[in-house]
Design a protein around this nucleic acid. Sequence first.
DNA 1: CGAATTTGGTAAAGCGCTTTACTGAACTGA
DNA 2: TCAGTTCAGTAAAGCGCTTTACCAAATTCG
Lengths: 333, 333
Amino acid sequence: MKPTIYDVASKANVSIATVSKVLNNSGRISDETRKRVLKVIEQLNYQPSMMATALTGKSTYTIGLLIPDMANPFFGELARNIEDRGHELGYNLLICSTDYQPAKEQNYIELLKRKSVDGIILASGFEQTSEVDKLVKEKFPVTIVARDFPSTYVNSVSLDDFQGGYEATSYLIQLGHRQIAIIARDVWSNRERMRGYKKALEDHGLEEYAMFTFVEKSTVEWGKKVAEEYLRSEKPPTAIFACNDLLASGAIQAARTLHLHVPDDVSIIGFDNTIIATLVDPQLTTMAQPIRAMGREVMDLMVGEIKKEEQSKRRIVLSPTLIKRGSTAKLNK
Amino acid sequence: MKPTIYDVASKANVSIATVSKVLNNSGRISDETRKRVLKVIEQLNYQPSMMATALTGKSTYTIGLLIPDMANPFFGELARNIEDRGHELGYNLLICSTDYQPAKEQNYIELLKRKSVDGIILASGFEQTSEVDKLVKEKFPVTIVARDFPSTYVNSVSLDDFQGGYEATSYLIQLGHRQIAIIARDVWSNRERMRGYKKALEDHGLEEYAMFTFVEKSTVEWGKKVAEEYLRSEKPPTAIFACNDLLASGAIQAARTLHLHVPDDVSIIGFDNTIIATLVDPQLTTMAQPIRAMGREVMDLMVGEIKKEEQSKRRIVLSPTLIKRGSTAKLNK
DNA sequence: CGAATTTGGTAAAGCGCTTTACTGAACTGA
DNA sequence: TCAGTTCAGTAAAGCGCTTTACCAAATTCG
């Protein structure tokens, strides 16, 4: 079977305490003994069990990541960047997809705690703050990403979604558009983007587009469905702001179905700047999220909290960047 | 702090053994005591620590997943499906991205073992079988997915890549193409697909396309780069078989750059049928992998092996399906 | 040269749980 | 009525590690 610390100890003719000290570079050990123990460890290919170590109060070096859906390119990329930074710092990820279901979120949090993760990164929907508050109250390390929690005293790194919505919309306005529709899902980030959208319209003395329905899921299909409704209506929009690239792709498909040209007949702007944005034709003008930076920052905050290096909480808010590509153009009437 | 089994025991006036029995539904407990204990558990919101449980020889209900890159849509989707089935069966995933680097693969395997995962699912490259053989030898539960290991006695679920390559190529031939190029990466699955490609050509008395270079990574950029080289050559291919959808998307972009129309000037066929295939324009004709089935099957095999329900190993080989979309057409000369 | 200190190492408790063996009380039945 | 069963529950060992005392031998110093 797998060798234990006892095997090492007896083969090296020392006590397990000594082996433990060699392992952790603690206490006093003569150079000679240290080498002997190290050699035996090598020979047996001994690897201390993290379970046992964790049971004595040490870290598991495992962090839980709650994410809506890792098959969604945005979250896949985000998870990947979080993982990479974690790897650099010696941590692994236990990833759980929640599908935005509060029940799943709740269950997973309990589960992750039972599995003694060192901390939890929340990239999920979390419409209520109660679960998060609970974690914070019991001093369990939590960090939030891609979702701001203004109300709670917790580490977070998020995007300025409001600004993103504002800029995206402003850009469309600047291109001459007056009838600007929005496609969004009823989740926090999208609502913020929508708030930005409304503010931009208001600031320019424009009216919100008459039609609006939330999509139920952030998928191409839903984007297509809703965009089609908009475009088939009596007064179709000349521009559509889709709250993510998937929805924007759907909007492009809708336009194509209706034999409308993008961007000449209708401009479409997306959000996220995932790989998708460069794949579709025309390529998507989109508000880019700094996914890599977000991943790294959130992991850094998490580890800082775990190691208690940083007592005070921080809220890091990153800015989106407008990436101009082919899906938007000046209004030609 | 977190309540332990001792807290429950003392509050319920029983021994920890009794609590343990209530928890595991083992041994004899009177209904009265059981209820009392259960009530205390509820009150304290007690959750047994999986670390401690695992230390006594029980499962951790955690499975390691080694995958090249979860930001790659194919692997993202695969991971998601594996996770879903795992969730149904009570398992979580510790996911590690290896970037096809053998060193990372090796390290992660050691790490996962130290973390006492119940088993490891390998979706990674693994050009050498040695690490896998080692796991098998020490009876550590391993299952391989999306990668066949004909030589080793191990559970696996894979795609018939050879057949996929053969069918994709045959389809192009059937459409009248004679100059068929291939874009592939030097990894096992791609080599198999290439073998199918060659066999199909041979069976139809056709010659392999004169040019060929492996891409270094399976990215849009590489697909574009290589496709451009092919299409710019003196005798450009009339059809390109790209070994995955990302590469195929790159090929479409290359064609567009050269003002060639897809599919009229050049037909392009992909592989995987990820979300990407429906996003690009024209939509990709592609060999679909049954990603969902693969995810479920591999998790089932894994759990079967962990629970020792199934002694004998199985190799499950699934068939790809040709999905005809807009990126391929009859050769018009 | 003897007391104080340093050095190198060990014994044992404890982390939170499972499980085996055991016990005393209540219940059988001839 | 009393030995034999069943029942309900407990004590204690053990899983693989860390850590706190603690100790004997070697070294230092006044």
